[in-house]
Design a protein around this nucleic acid. Structure first.
Lengths: 216, 216
DNA sequence: GAAAAAAATGACCAGGTAGTCATATGACTA
DNA sequence: TAGTCATATGACTACCTGGTCATTTTTTTC
């Protein structure tokens, strides 16, 4: 697990570390794992190729380090939202989480890009473990929200928990994708819409989740 | 658009055409566009490299031909489902469409794989057009179902159409992904479950869509 | 059956890749 | 100042890529 990054890297000045992390994130997010070029990476971070191999064992090592770094950032951000909205209604919390997700992506587009690049590429090292870590975290997050919502009587008592979590996960994930992948954005016009409009869309979706599609 | 495949290809015996299409589909579905190797492709279809370039202009041409071929198959299949369930209730139609999707993927796993490989790779030729074709088709399909459901009074009259379609699209797409990408299958245990169990999951999700999560 | 046209072939090319290694640098020690 | 040692370097290797082309083989035409 930790034989990915060598001690030399941590001896580097923080600014240099950051330069390398930034360049790696950009390259992997743009090209995916296999297609990412270490030559491009070293050029963009102004270090030599030889140095790169004194910081990391190999390409795989660089990638894993970067991805774990990214996962850490996501966890921290989402847990903060969960805590900040502790007292709110279930659907409000959901709405806030979603908007926080949009905000995160706006601030760290390359981290989200990296995640998307991994999703369906079976040849990425440790892909199953990395993906499962992300999805499991999301599911746990939503489960916690659902249980608190149930405890407060904001949700139907007979709610099938796994199905509900699945539906929520699907909707949230797709919403984020639609925000930053125009081709997904066929129905709502999220992509270029102002923040206010975006919030209105979210609220409409939340209302739909609450009351369902069927005739009352 | 049609300068992708050269006339020589269509003069080939159908069996040989099929061999090439199969090998190309397998290679692109497994590796994605850039990472797919034409050397592997020709080896697997038992033709020489030179021949490949007498059938197609270049790599891009092969890819586009294969993808359009795949799109055709999907359209045909889904339109048949829509027609077959013409008389059914909205939620039944949805359920049937979803199960038909699962069945299609089971029968043509490489076509679905190809679609997934395209989703987030900006470097795929014509990606935006290809993706939009697929998503637009799905959205149109769902819109048609929703409108007929509304006309028959099976859905709330005040249903916000775009939001509803978005939600349905998100759920259906994610369901298919969960069926064939184990890492997505964190909550429901779809991946290795028998068909009966799978159908029960779908029904549970349909019920959730109908009545919503909120307290009555 | 000969000539012409069409199709098949694989060695070859330029350009890219991940990773290596002998050498150079420069900071710290004695 | 001399010696030591962690770090920095980029030319280099072996390999793989998409694409080309002179040549051979097969098919068609007369």
């Amino acid at each position: 697990m930790s034989d990915t990054v060598l001690p030399t890297f941590h001896n580097l000045p923080l600014a240099k570390q950051k330069r390398i992390i930034d360049a790696a994130l950009a390259e992997f997010a743009d090209k995916g794992y296999q297609q990412a070029s270490l030559n491009t990476l070293v050029a963009h971070s102004s270090i030599s190729k030889g140095s790169l191999y004194q910081y990391f064992r190999d390409k795989r090592g660089i990638f894993l380090y970067i991805f774990q770094f990214a996962i850490g950032l996501v966890r921290k951000t989402l847990l903060r939202v969960k805590d900040d909205t502790r007292e709110e209604n279930f659907f409000i919390r959901l709405e806030r989480s979603l908007l926080a997700g949009v905000d995160f992506i706006r601030r760290h587009p390359r981290i989200y890009g990296l995640y998307l690049k991994i999703l369906f590429d079976e040849h990425v090292p440790q892909r199953v473990e990395l993906l499962q870590a992300v999805r499991q975290f999301a599911a746990d997050y939503l489960r916690s929200l659902v249980r608190q919502g149930l405890a407060r009587g904001e949700l139907r008592e007979d709610l099938p928990e796994p199905a509900a979590i699945f539906l929520l996960d699907a909707l949230l994930d797709r919403f984020l994708q639609a925000v930053c992948v125009p081709a997904f954005d066929v129905t709502l016009a999220l992509h270029q819409s102002p923040p206010g409009n975006l919030q209105q869309c979210v609220q409409e979706l939340m209302a739909l989740l609450r009351t369902g599609l069927g005739k009352a």
